[in-house]
Amino acid sequence: MLAKRIIPCLDVKDGQTVKGTKFLQLRQAGDPVELGKLYSRQGADELVFLDITASHEGRKTFADMVQKVAAEIDIPFTVGGGISELADVERMLSAGADKISINSAALRRPQLIDEIVSHFGSQVCVVAIDAKLNGDEGRENSDEETWTCYLNGGRIPTERNLFDWAREVNDRGAGEILFTSMNHDGVKQGFACNALSRLASQLTIPVIASGGAGRMEDFRDVFKQGHADAALAASVFHFGQIGIPQLKEYLRKEGINVRPPVRV
């Protein structure tokens, strides 16, 4: 049986891991390669490295880091941040990334998804969607129009609705969707399970849930109620609030199929 995946996410700025709250307030959380290795040993199922550097110099540092990760880590990893054309994808894949994640560039030019899929295959193409629920969170389930997609790390709203865009991404051949609820991100009160469950019912590709992990119960809920295929989190892992081995043991007891602890 296919296991539900637990994915630590490492935001990398100038070669260092950082994590903010609601996309702001960066805090230091260590060397990304070492952190990635630690998570891999602890039983993480995949890793995501997001480059949030703006400078050209920082981007080069990131590419060097990707090479180190590829050489040292024996589980799959996705890289994203600043990928806007085929040449960027090519560069990351030849540095050793297994998958790439695109976000703003796909919203600006959806054709990019088709190009990546035809050049490198669906399995390589993860489309990240940052969306925000406008208005009352209690009405999350009632009005399709209220989830708006955002560009540039949550800074610029678009005309796009989450569900329409996710469907289009699916139909253009992307391999997975990584959905971050901006309302839930960094708040640690649980994932956006209603929206996730709706995505799961509408899409034919896997959905990675992101934003809101605070307690182990949140992971149970995102799989049981949100029907997510994978759950991504950052600070709860970086700051040691939740250990991956304990989390997996808990999820197994809750009847959720996760990959068993790694043999030593």
Binding site: M1, R5, D229
Partner: peptide
């Protein structure tokens, strides 16, 4: 796929 839950590609850890 035989049902909606059968996502393709088959991606992830399986025994």
């Amino acid at each position: 796929p035989l049902c909606h839950e059968d996502k393709i590609p088959h991606m992830g850890w399986n025994s």
